[in-house]
Simulated assay, not measured.
Amino acid sequence: MADISHGLMIKFGLANAPSESLSERWASLTRIYINGGMDREAAGDRAAKELFPDYQTRFYASEADTISYLLQQAGDKK
C-alpha cells in the first residue's frame, strides 16, 4: 500500500504518508460513504477529514490522484 499512502499524503496535504492500516481504514470508510450514496470525491474527503489529524496541513506542488484511482490502488475493482 506504499503507493496509496503516498497518494493520500499528496491528495489530502498530510505531513506524512499514512500507515498501511490507516490507508486501509481510509479506503474502507470511503467505500462505506460511497455505498451510502455520496460522490466518490466527497466520500474520500470526508473519510480523510475524520481519519487524518494532519489533514490539509501541507501543500504539495504536484498533481493529486483522484479518489477513484486511490481506491483502485487499495483493491477496489469498481
Rank of each mutant, 00 (worst) to 15 (best):
I34Q: 00
Q73Y: 04
I67S: 07
H6L: 14
E50F: 10
G7H: 04
K78D: 07
L14R: 06
L8H: 01
D39A: 11
W26C: 00
K77W: 02
L71V: 04
Y69Q: 14
E24F: 07
A64D: 07
S28P: 05
F12C: 00
L22K: 08
P53D: 10
K49M: 14
E50K: 11
P53W: 03
Y69L: 12
S21K: 12
D54C: 03
I67C: 10
A74H: 04
T30K: 03
A17R: 10
A2S: 14
I34C: 09
L22N: 00
L29K: 11
D76M: 05
S5Y: 05
Y69M: 13
Q56L: 13
A48R: 06
S68V: 03
E63I: 14
E41P: 08
Y55M: 06
E24G: 01
K77T: 12
G13C: 04
S23G: 14
R58S: 03
D76C: 07
Q72E: 13
Q73S: 02
Q73V: 06
A17N: 06
S23D: 08
L14Q: 06
Y55H: 11
A15R: 15
Y33G: 11
S62P: 07
F59R: 15
N35F: 11
A27K: 02
A48T: 10
H6N: 11
E24A: 11
S19K: 05
P18Y: 10
R25I: 05
E41C: 02
R46T: 09
D3S: 15
R58I: 05
F52D: 01
L70F: 09
G37D: 02
E24Q: 12
N16I: 10
A43E: 04
G37S: 05
D65Y: 12
I34A: 06
I4T: 13
Y60T: 06
D54F: 00
E41W: 07
L71S: 08
M38F: 15
A64G: 12
R40W: 13
M38D: 12
K77A: 09
A27D: 04
L22V: 11
G37W: 08
D39P: 01
E20F: 08
I34G: 05
R40Y: 13
P18V: 08
E41Q: 09
W26A: 04
P53A: 02
N35P: 07
A47I: 03
I67W: 06
S21G: 02
D39C: 02
R46I: 05
D65E: 15
S23A: 15
G44W: 04
A27V: 03
G75R: 12
S19T: 15
A15D: 04
I32R: 12
L29C: 00
D3R: 15
T30D: 10
G37Y: 04
